[in-house]
Amino acid sequence: MDKIAVLIPCYNESKTIEKVVTDFKKALPEATIYVFDNNSSDGTDEIARKAGAVVKYEYQQGKGNVIRRMFREIDAECYVMTDGDDTYPAESAREMVDCVLNHHADMVVGDRLSSTYFEENKRPFHNFGNSIVRSSINSLFHTNIKDIMTGYRAFSYQFVKTFPVLSQGFEIETEMSIHAADKNMFVENVIIEYRDRPEGSESKLNTYSDGFKVLRTIASLFRTYKPMAFFGVIALILAVLGVGFMIPVLVEFNHTGLVERFPTLIVCCFVILAAMVSFFAGLQLQTITRKNRQDFEMELQHVHYEYEHLEK
């Protein structure tokens, strides 16, 4: 098992990968640098290999698929994940590693948003999207993660081996953040100096399609991790609509003794019934979610035992 493993997912980063590998070898000389190539066509893998990295391959396209492969194949006491585009400073890696190895953090977030991100990043919709995602997740999951979508993170062995990778693309960082918040993982924030991509290096992130995927992922994970809140809101909305439209019908019946709008009455009854179904569905799923959390804690015990065995 490696003491420290630096994991770099790459897709066509030939202009920057050599510098990234060299910088991290200098910052963490005891670390093993892994570059996971994701079908690059510009020779990224050969450049990384010549720079001294261990090159592995993931042929299923998408950052989430690459991270799944990384977490399955590599065993280490501490993992540092960064991008191959030279936007994250290797000099911050030592502080992040110390948080994992000495402070027992499960995930360390390289916080771009508290430093230079909004000045360096020239894409205004990315800035706006990052702020919206951060506010949404911190509000919905009652956490204080400073940068939800950063690709610069450090992890403990326990986090990596218990994190179920479901996303295939760039929404993977959002999934990591929500998983850590829901499972009461110890998260620390380390402020880093972000720099924009060098000239000639192009981002693989599509502002609109990937942004929509991230928002959809937040909604999906909120439903999964907070079912009572999710279905409770739906139940409340349906109940308000059903009762609101039924009140005039009941007032009319009280005055005349007749129900002239039977269709409205019938629809209202079905809407209120749907609200009751939604409420009890949320209640049942909340019980299942609580049981899953208990099972997860037991799984952590198993992974901790496995970790100690690998150290020996």
Rank of each mutant, 00 (worst) to 15 (best):
D196E: 15
P89M: 12
L140N: 03
F125M: 13
D2P: 01
N127L: 03
I172R: 02
A229P: 01
R216C: 11
V80M: 05
M1W: 09
L7N: 01
A31D: 02
L166N: 05
E95V: 15
S201R: 13
V35D: 01
L221Q: 07
S209K: 09
D182E: 15
R293H: 05
L238F: 00
L205K: 13
Q301I: 14
D37P: 03
R293K: 14
K56M: 15
L205V: 15
G211T: 06
E202S: 13
M228D: 04
K15L: 12
V240E: 07
T16C: 12
P124Y: 11
I218M: 10
T32N: 09
N292D: 10
I191T: 13
V66P: 06
T143A: 09
E202A: 13
F159P: 00
V133N: 05
N39S: 04
L166R: 14
T289G: 06
V267W: 05
T264G: 05
I145G: 00
F270K: 05
H255W: 13
A219R: 15
E202Q: 12
S135G: 06
S203Q: 06
M246C: 10
K26Q: 11
H126L: 05
V35Q: 02
M70K: 00
I132R: 08
S167Q: 14
I47Y: 10
A53S: 08
L28D: 06
V54Y: 04
Q61C: 06
N292W: 03
A275Y: 06
T174C: 15
A27P: 11
Y208T: 15
H304N: 08
V190E: 04
K26N: 12
S92G: 04
L221H: 11
D196I: 08
V187N: 02
L283M: 11
L236P: 00
D106L: 14
A5F: 06
K161Q: 02
Y152F: 15
E306F: 05
E91S: 15
F279H: 04
A229N: 12
P248H: 11
M246V: 09
Y307V: 08
H304R: 08
R293Y: 04
S40P: 07
G242Y: 01
R223A: 02
E306D: 12
K50T: 07
R49S: 04
I266S: 07
F141Q: 05
R69S: 12
H142R: 14
P198S: 11
N138T: 05
P9I: 01
M276F: 04
L101F: 09
L140I: 12
F118K: 07
E173C: 08
H309I: 14
A76W: 04
K56I: 13
F24L: 12
N189H: 08
A5H: 03
F262M: 15
